[in-house]
Design a protein around this nucleic acid. Sequence first.
DNA 1: CGCTAATTTGACCTGGATCAACTACGGTGG
DNA 2: CCACCGTAGTTGATCCAGGTCAAATTAGCG
Lengths: 247, 247
Amino acid sequence: MATEFDHPLQPLVRKLESLTILSDEEREAIQGLPFKRRALNARQDVVRDGDTASQCCLVLEGWACRYKIIREGKRQIFSFHIAGDIPDLQGLHIPLMDHGFATMTTATVAFIPHEAMRDLTARFSGVAAKLWHDMLVDAGIFRQWLICMGRRSAYDQMAHLFCELYLRQEAVGLAADNRCSMPITQVDLADATGLSYVHVNRVLQEMRAKGLITLRGGVLVIEDWDELVRVAEFDGAYLHQRKRAVA
Amino acid sequence: MATEFDHPLQPLVRKLESLTILSDEEREAIQGLPFKRRALNARQDVVRDGDTASQCCLVLEGWACRYKIIREGKRQIFSFHIAGDIPDLQGLHIPLMDHGFATMTTATVAFIPHEAMRDLTARFSGVAAKLWHDMLVDAGIFRQWLICMGRRSAYDQMAHLFCELYLRQEAVGLAADNRCSMPITQVDLADATGLSYVHVNRVLQEMRAKGLITLRGGVLVIEDWDELVRVAEFDGAYLHQRKRAVA
DNA sequence: CGCTAATTTGACCTGGATCAACTACGGTGG
DNA sequence: CCACCGTAGTTGATCCAGGTCAAATTAGCG
């Protein structure tokens, strides 16, 4: 858990260290990044579809998501983001955003100028590699979501999502003991899975009834991890985490 | 179209030039890459799920796809690849493959050692940037597929896929006049869209009946591009092509 | 010509969508 | 302290896009 003594950008360090090892020099360079800290309300757009970005946004606290609105008000959420994530890191190389990015809860973020990121990666190629690594893991997560949407039942798909979100939080010290925060509504869950919110509700009830998980008041409790992993056919290797690479 | 006078790695040059501009120096450096050319049969694995890669594979001719097999023999295809694509480029940074990659047709590929790629990108940071750019576009394609699977009907989703595959081929000189090669079976199409092959067949018939497209003998003819774009709600910006960025 | 893979068809079924209330609950203001 | 209100969660009834099964037809190809 973060303490008041941590460096403000500590979540980013923690995130990268969950994937690879940082040298002291690299850690210091990251902590030396210039940034503007901002407190945001829940459900607030950070970057809009079509924007051209000149800075990137590191999540320090709270949850965010990337999404796209399509015809008839339908929304598809691509990914959820927690402390340490830089959801718009790709904007560094393709400034034109082809989707939006918004907070889900009240959140604290740090805006870091592209300029500064470029300078950092130019001076420390190891950091550049680690940021790329992170972006590739991100792409791997997309692939898993694709599998889930294409070839799994609603039940299995949601089980998979819970496995992922638990492990990602665990990796950065935000989850333990089969319990983590999950401050998203059933409508959000529906937009992420491609299901209707009514069906999400029914699947959650079924999971609760079967003693798999409980999701209430923004808290996910995993009652039976092994069974959750089994139905989701979950293999955490795609997250490429240093510890607990396999669930 | 490629001629016998082209450099063997010309497809890669052409692909990168569809996204950005290469300097003469960069073009020459790319053409100087060491490689092993291989002719492959159709439906042949190139890289298997779980492999650790030490070279990457450039498609010179024919089609390939990335995919993953899940329980009960279900398969999900993530992406189709044509001449100029390096489907396993990410293996350069995350050698452990979390999915497979196989040819769909007979194909010619070039294997390029990671060593040589790393050397190239170290010497030419512009080439490195352009390869990354390509990988980010790839991630953008995943996001579009996610939208299609999550929030569009089978009909609209397939229309979107045809728009994408036509434009990607056009960008590298493999398509023109609303006509392009599409050497994939209806089963492949089903595995890519998450539909059943029976339903794919019915949707194709409906499209044919409505004068939208014809797909027969591995050739896609787009009879009504505007209507195809309209039903797919297609916006080609995500492909980040230099010309015709918007459909 | 004969085989196999691919496409097509028909009948039937079901997971999940849609529609329409209704309930629970945490503010918030009087 | 309670009435009010908006958001999130639940429930039931009904519907349909797309799945499944099984068989028939057609296209390629050696």
